[in-house]
Nucleic acid binder design. Structure first.
Lengths: 342, 342
DNA sequence: GTGAAAGCGCTAACAA
DNA sequence: TTGTTAGCGCTTTCAC
């Protein structure tokens, strides 16, 4: 059971032991040896501290040191399975190193992202792991200029030299499209989010290159991230399917796949048996869907580990010391039934 | 773009305007009128503060006031869709009221939960929304005794009089089982987590009552929450299915359903077409699964809204003032194909 | 109406 | 080797 920590403070401990707060502070912060504090003094302090289960007030510590031991993890939407999974891993890694994580969702919206950063700036957040919304390059830049550790992921700003962890979007998309073509599909559609953000631009480029290589037509549906509600999204997909006589579709992200599958189930069940389907981002349910859905799977664990590695390194050394780390990870192609010509 | 807030402080503002920090503080905290500060003074301060986009240091404020404007949201596993969705809603509601949310996963493990609470206790966390692990009743109690706002959800401790928001587990489970029976199923299995926590106990009781009412046998599989890995879980389910000639299954929680469906797809695909399947917790993918999976759906939005309402109320008034709020919400039964006798 | 100053709990430079 | 003390930025009592 948690001790009812009766608001112990350094001062009280010092009084109790008849020594100064400095001594206690030094001992507690592992500077005892360095400051040549006697072994018996050290032992005495440690024993008492343990006895009362003393926990220093982190706020005071933060106010004094300017460090909060808190990392912000900002994604588009924390309820998205993909982000939530990464968040979970980040959380574990961070806790092991004594950091707490504040999660937040920016809805891919600049204003929301800016608000959030602004709020956090005045809480001495130690570091930021961010999926940037399209227009906050300058805000990110100013964070970096202030020497605050920032690591982007999922996407980055080509014109901003900073740390990031991403995947080989173009290549993954190219390979995926090629896989569809090799499986005999000829009229391959691409359903994506209407944005200039590079992860999506690259996924589209990979698709286009693969399609053009084989002199096939490209059929692209762009849906606004903030399309009015789920139903509007689905309606667009439905119309797209009706208007184009496609034999396969590549979805650029998991939530579009989900909408797409819903549309297929609701309006074109007969297509489920033959339409080629390939999706970015794997999901546990894709393997038990009928047909099972082939996926371009992002290495969540690896992404999280890399993000934290970079972050922890930045946390140690002032950001400007070293070259920004640009990490590009490989995706894994998971062929299932939905991409086999049936 | 975010202003490069050059570390403005109350003191600097006061110096700049040739007034005292007190005055600035009063104006900024809306106590100007009350303290009878002249309108022109107020205007002057507000104008300057706006000009420099001053943001008070929250840490200092917290240290002084003992309030952090941070709420902790602790669940079993934040990567679980169900919890992540609720987290997302909580996040939004909290931000609107000026609160930040720290999410964390306790893995239904007392030690982890205790560690987390301990860490947070010394950060002046304003309130806790918690899914309690089985053995932390006393820790929760001591939090409450210290007057810290706590709201439990998903489950609670019958012997601890505190705020909670839960659903009518027994009734939902009873109704669900009855639905299966009415649809002609007779050998209904129940797959659940091996725990004494009341949400699960109640779900089991609902099942048992419904089954006994009709003189049917009960077949229960209990799986440890921390069963060694996903594969062990699946193996147990597989053996359970092999050992019992069931015609329907009620899963007590979404991740068991997921494992169960995987087992069915991998080992008993022929059962998918006829086995009655009903699950606690709806998931977007259940409606596009083949067959679509009937679900006992928890009202996520309502849960989140109620949690925040109670929390905000506690945040306003000292916890001990009012009677603990015990809120029980209704679930929604969503009949789909999997529970119809086919 | 406004200001001075104590103090929240901690760190660390400086003194002894 | 240990202690004294200033100060992080803010709120708030009390004095003027």
């Amino acid at each position: 059971m948690i001790k009812k920590s009766k608001k112990y403070t350094l001062k009280k401990i010092a009084e109790k032991l008849n020594i100064s707060v400095t001594t206690v502070s030094f001992v507690l912060n592992g500077q005892a040896k360095e400051k040549k504090i006697s072994d018996e003094m050290i032992a005495k302090v440690l024993a008492y501290v343990k006895e009362i289960d003393y926990q220093p007030n982190q706020l005071a510590k933060s106010l004094r040191t300017g460090k909060s031991k808190i990392i912000v993890f900002m994604v588009e939407d924390i309820s998205n399975q993909f982000f939530a999974s990464i968040a979970r891993i980040i959380e574990d890694l961070a806790y092991k190193k004594g950091y707490k994580v504040i999660f937040c969702s920016n809805e891919n919206n600049d204003e929301k992202a800016r608000d959030l950063i602004n709020i956090f700036k005045h809480r001495q957040i130690d570091g930021y792991i961010i999926i940037p919304s399209p227009g906050i390059e300058n805000d990110i830049r100013s964070l970096i200029e202030e020497g605050i550790p920032v690591v982007l992921f999922d996407r980055y700003f080509p014109s901003l030299d900073t740390n990031y962890v991403v995947i080989d979007n173009e290549h993954a998309s190219y390979q995926g499209t090629k896989h569809l073509i090799e499986n005999g599909y000829k009229k391959i559609g691409f359903i994506t989010i209407d944005t200039q953000q590079n992860q999506m631009v690259n996924r589209m480029r990979g698709y286009q290159i693969a399609v053009e290589e084989k002199d096939l037509n490209s059929n692209i549906l762009r849906i606004a991230f903030h399309e009015n509600g789920q139903d509007q999204k689905k309606l667009k997909i439905k119309k797209f399917l009706e208007a184009n006589d496609l034999d396969a579709i590549l979805f650029s992200t998991n939530y579009l796949t989900q909408s797409g599958l819903e549309v297929l189930h609701e309006s074109f069940p007969e297509l489920l048996g033959k339409l080629g389907i390939l999706t970015f981002d794997d999901h546990e349910f894709f393997k038990i869907h009928t047909p099972s859905i082939s996926a371009i799977s992002q290495p969540k664990k690896e992404i999280a580990v890399n993000l934290m590695n970079v972050m922890l390194q930045l946390l140690k050394k002032p950001a400007k010391d070293s070259e920004p780390k640009n990490i590009t990870l490989n995706t894994e192609f998971i062929p299932r039934v939905s991409s086999q010509h049936r």
